[in-house]
């Protein structure tokens, strides 16, 4: 099992965000998480790599086990080797002075070996060759997103979590990102994507979590979740085109 969540509840001061979440994600699954704004998607992502409860304060109960490790008892760097989290806005996470340095940042933190080789390979994987010495601030938004993914891939985690990775991208860049994710998933990585675009989830994810106000409204195979048109409409989630007929 890649991720096991049991009875997870989390509240920020004065606001309950996650309510009684129980979820099992198998290894090599491609899971999509969707739901309306404020339904707790990003907060749930922060639970996957231990930022909650280790760094973000709030009332936490239940348990989250990632690759067998209890996130309450594990340090974030230890979890970072197993779970790579790509944040929603690339500008929140890119700060180094060159693409190469940005990718090697996590590797240096985790004292990993073969840094040069890993950096080279992850740059090739996302197609950023030729940009090694460029400042991350000066590349396009799609390239920034690819860089964020590369900086996580270089750490070779078994689980990759992406928070709305294509929210600022055009169609071509979006498809590029999803093709990379599909390839990684076929190579055995567990991919978890938070996404509003249900058509994309329908095309790529094998399982979908539908969140409603911090609760799981439905979890299962993509076609099973998306065929429940009434529920999707009730939650303000777009019914994928193929299910509209």
């Amino acid at each position: 099992m890649a991720i096991e969540i049991k009875n997870l509840n989390f509240s920020y001061p004065g606001k309950t965000v996650l309510r009684n979440i129980s979820l099992d994600i198998e290894k090599a699954d491609f899971v999509g998480i969707t739901g309306s704004t404020g339904s707790g998607k990003t907060t749930l992502a922060y639970c996957f790599n231990g930022l909650i409860p280790n760094s973000i304060r709030g009332r936490f109960s239940g348990s989250v086990r990632v690759a067998g490790l209890d996130t309450r008892k594990s340090k974030i760097p230890e979890l970072a080797k197993r779970v790579g989290l790509v944040f929603q806005d690339p500008d929140w996470q890119l700060f180094s002075l060159s693409v190469r340095e940005e990718i090697s940042f996590g590797l240096l933190n985790l004292k990993m070996e073969n840094i040069e080789k890993r950096v080279r390979e992850s740059i090739k994987m996302v197609g950023l060759e030729g940009y090694e010495e460029t400042e991350p601030h000066k590349i396009s938004q799609g390239q920034k997103q690819k860089l964020c993914i590369a900086s996580v891939l270089a750490m070779e985690p078994d689980i990759i979590v992406l928070d709305e990775p294509t929210s600022q991208l055009d169609y071509r860049s979006t498809m590029n990102i999803y093709r990379i994710l599909e390839r990684l998933n076929k190579e055995g990585k567990t991919v978890i994507v938070i996404e509003h675009n249900t058509d994309l989830l329908d095309a790529y994810a094998n399982k979908v979590v539908l969140l409603e106000n911090g609760r799981i409204a439905k979890y299962g195979p993509a076609e099973q979740v998306f065929s429940d048109k009434k529920l999707l409409e009730k939650l303000g989630v777009k019914v994928p085109e193929v299910y509209k007929k």
């Binding site: 973000i56 974030i76 970072a80 929140w92 996470q93 933190n109 750490m155």
Partner: peptide, 16 residues
């Protein structure tokens, strides 16, 4: 807001 997220992103990549 950016600094706060940046700190989280750095931690998520093992920075202490």
């Amino acid at each position: 807001d950016r600094s706060e997220h940046m700190a989280l992103a750095m931690q998520a990549r093992g920075f202490e």
